[in-house]
Amino acid sequence: MSAHSVEHGDEPIIERPERAISALRQALARVAPSKLPLMESERDEVLTLAAATQSVGPVNGFLLRWAMVVEIERHPATARRLHEAERLVRAASDEESMRSAARTAADIKAAARRAVGE
């Protein structure tokens, strides 16, 4: 199976949410509740930065990042593959294993980015 697509049989456990803070927060609460504190902390930082710079760029980046996280986490097998690849990147004892795992993680994230429309 290509790392560029969702695995066959890896049906989403929730519908893809709108790209809005409240919708993404609600979706994250269902698919990866342990990540909520990080999302909320980042949200506060991003909103402060957006106000200070008078730019919506930081907010758009935040929404894209968390839309991608939800996209991955709503597909359990894909999420497991990403988490395993990230673990292997940290634990790899040789450069080739580390690079292979990093490519897998990057491919999964790129597919999620395409899926959410960015």
Rank of each mutant, 00 (worst) to 15 (best):
M1A: 13
M1C: 07
A3C: 08
A3R: 15
A3E: 12
H4A: 10
H4Y: 13
S5P: 00
S5M: 13
S5L: 15
V6S: 13
V6P: 05
V6M: 08
E7Y: 13
E7Q: 10
E7D: 13
H8Y: 11
H8Q: 14
E11V: 04
E11Y: 04
P12C: 02
I13T: 13
I13R: 07
I14G: 00
E15P: 01
E15I: 04
R16F: 05
P17N: 08
E18Y: 04
R19K: 10
S22G: 04
S22V: 10
S22Q: 10
A23F: 07
L24Q: 06
L24G: 04
L24T: 08
L28H: 06
L28Q: 07
A29F: 00
A29P: 00
P33N: 03
S34L: 06
K35H: 07
L36Y: 01
P37R: 02
L38F: 02
L38A: 07
S41L: 06
S41P: 00
E42A: 03
E42I: 00
R43V: 03
R43S: 06
D44M: 10
D44T: 13
E45Q: 12
E45M: 10
V46H: 04
L47Y: 14
T48L: 07
L49W: 01
L49V: 02
L49Q: 15
A50K: 06
A50V: 05
A51S: 09
T53C: 09
T53G: 07
Q54P: 02
Q54W: 04
S55Y: 11
V56D: 13
G57W: 14
G57L: 15
P58I: 10
V59D: 10
N60P: 02
N60Q: 15
F62M: 02
L64K: 15
R65E: 09
W66S: 01
W66I: 01
A67C: 06
M68R: 14
M68E: 12
M68A: 12
V69M: 02
V69Q: 03
V69I: 14
V70N: 03
E71P: 12
E71I: 03
E73P: 00
E73Q: 10
P76S: 03
P76L: 02
A77L: 13
A77Y: 08
T78N: 08
A79W: 11
R81P: 08
L82E: 12
E84A: 15
E84I: 13
E84V: 15
R87V: 02
R87F: 05
L88H: 05
L88D: 12
V89H: 00
R90C: 04
R90F: 02
A91S: 09
A91C: 05
A92M: 00
S93D: 12
S93P: 01
S93E: 15
S93V: 15
E95A: 12
E95D: 12
E96F: 11
E96N: 07
E96V: 04
S97W: 02
M98K: 14
M98S: 09
R99H: 11
R99I: 06
A102H: 03
A102C: 03
A102Q: 10
A105I: 06
A106L: 05
A106R: 09
A106N: 06
I108S: 14
K109F: 04
A110I: 08
A110R: 14
A111G: 09
A112C: 07
A112L: 05
A115Q: 07
A115L: 10
A115F: 04
V116T: 04
